[in-house]
């Protein structure tokens, strides 16, 4: 099994349909936002729900400082505000 070593060699004509991991593959998706999640960290209990559910992976719950959102990419869907059990996140018009 696996008797021969596989050889990977670049093609002579090398425009292949190969993509590689990239941040912002669809651009700065924060520009799509119509409403912005605003966090009241004094209310935050560090339960992590907003981070877990955030579909864009832009929320970080830091134990010391609370919720941090990367607004460059946050699409403003509002899921974080909806799942927050203590209403520490509010959606406000841009």
């Amino acid at each position: 099994m696996g008797k021969d070593k596989l050889v990977i060699e670049k093609p002579l004509y090398d425009r292949l349909p190969i993509a590689k991991p990239m941040v912002g593959v669809a651009g700065k998706t924060g520009l799509w936002r119509v409403e912005k999640p605003v966090v009241n960290n004094s209310k935050c209990t560090r339960c992590f729900l907003c981070e877990i559910y955030c579909p864009v992976n832009v929320i970080r719950v830091e134990p010391e400082t609370g919720v941090e959102i990367d607004y460059d990419y946050c699409k403003g869907c509002g899921i974080c505000a909806d799942v927050c059990p203590v209403n520490a996140i509010e959606m406000k018009p841009e």
Binding site: G24, A26, W32, V56, V58, I79
Partner: peptide
């Protein structure tokens, strides 16, 4: 954390999903 931190690792921000899409979740 309720889930391991490497939940953060794979999905790069700025994907092309519609807002609120369940797929990247």
């Amino acid at each position: 954390p309720p889930l391991p931190y490497n939940m953060r690792e794979v999905l790069q921000p700025g994907d092309a999903a519609c807002p609120g899409c369940p797929i990247p979740m």
